[in-house]
Amino acid sequence: MKYTLLELIGLASIGTVSWFVFREVWKFMYSTFIGHALGRSLSLKNIGQWAVVTGATDGIGRAYAEELASHGLNIVLISRSPYKLQNVAAEIESQYKVKTKIIDVDFTSGIEIYDRIKKEIEGLEIGVLINNVGMSYAYPEYLAEVPNATEFSQSLINCNVVSVTQMCILVLRQMVERKKGLILNVSSASAVLPTPLMTMYSSTKAYVYKFSEDLALEYAPFGITIQCVLPGFVVSKMSRYKKPAFRIPLPRDFVRGHMRTLGLEFASAGFWVHKILLGYYTKLNTVSPSTVVNVTFTNLSGTRQRALRRLQMQREQQENGIDTAKDK
């Protein structure tokens, strides 16, 4: 049976598209479900006695601390509030019967905090580092209109960029000596997608992505696994989502899903719904970048307008309260 040239081109196109779809589906299924079920994901057994988690008192950070404790690792909890750290540490020790150590530092501060962290973790066999601490905008905004932009930009860089870099420097040498270790650097889906009105935030997360990519290549010969995490929205104080939904998981569900991907892919959106959404939008961004830009800009512009209306209402309520007090 002979085919015309047009039919051959059509068959070749169908075959190419089918192969592309099959490959993407297989990658998703393997990294999300199959690889872990076959025992191919990274085991935390004998990786080290301690795990260090930054931003450990809320959200994803706390969920990572609890998940690692459930695997028998002792936990170094690093965050800003001593009171919250003490409470989380007590709960983890009680529930998981592991040791904890707390370090209260503000990652928006300068480089001097890392001297203290270095002294506090000295002598600990650290097998896992979770670079989770981060901060974002109060609401999407044009760069020149960000409140206290100069001070905010420095705090953002210290918290999102300097923290990841310095914490890796602190733990890598001992991991190399033992030829084992795991570092998870929490970035964001905004690192790989257009994110207007969140320019500084997405840029710091893009740094985390590139830094993790090259660091993973550097230290793979030493037996160290370095993975970049690219979450979408999760129920947390930073996201301001208070209730879970189909695409907005609880922190523990996100972390449990992500832990199954360890060692199976360099960058992971973690939760299976996030992986589908990120895969869809990154492919769409390749084919039709203007579409993705329009979607993100429209969504973030709407969020900005709602936030500005709330702020205006709050100002009016405060002014009315002051006027009422004066009348009395």
Rank of each mutant, 00 (worst) to 15 (best):
F222Y: 11
A245T: 14
S70T: 07
Q314E: 15
W19R: 05
Y139E: 03
Q95F: 12
R256I: 07
Y139I: 02
F233Y: 11
N132K: 00
L85C: 01
S236D: 03
G134Y: 00
E319K: 12
Y207Q: 01
V53I: 15
G59V: 11
Y241F: 14
R173I: 06
A269P: 08
L129I: 08
V21K: 05
R304Y: 02
T291Y: 11
T261E: 12
S187A: 15
F20K: 15
L8T: 04
S13P: 01
Y209H: 12
R306N: 13
I14E: 03
T195R: 02
G123Q: 05
I248E: 00
Q312H: 10
E177T: 11
V293W: 07
T303W: 08
G39M: 04
Q312W: 11
R178E: 07
S153H: 10
T57A: 02
A37Q: 13
P147L: 12
K328Y: 09
V162K: 11
A144E: 13
F107Q: 12
L311P: 04
G123D: 01
T150H: 11
R252F: 15
R173V: 09
V176Q: 04
A63H: 07
T199Q: 10
A12V: 12
V255R: 01
Y30E: 03
I117R: 07
Y219I: 14
I157V: 15
P194H: 14
S203Y: 03
I224N: 13
I226R: 12
L250T: 08
R256C: 10
K205T: 08
L6C: 06
L182H: 00
V146H: 08
Q49C: 01
L68N: 08
L73N: 11
S41T: 05
N46Y: 14
S288A: 09
D323H: 09
N148D: 15
I9W: 07
D58I: 01
K97P: 01
S79Q: 10
K45Y: 05
S236I: 06
Q49M: 04
P147R: 09
I226G: 13
V208N: 08
S239W: 01
A37V: 09
V25Y: 10
V128F: 12
L217I: 15
T204F: 04
K84W: 02
A191W: 03
T324V: 03
R256L: 15
S70F: 02
A65I: 01
V192E: 07
D115K: 02
I117M: 08
I9G: 04
V88Y: 06
V287W: 15
K45L: 11
T100F: 02
P194D: 13
S70I: 10
F152A: 13
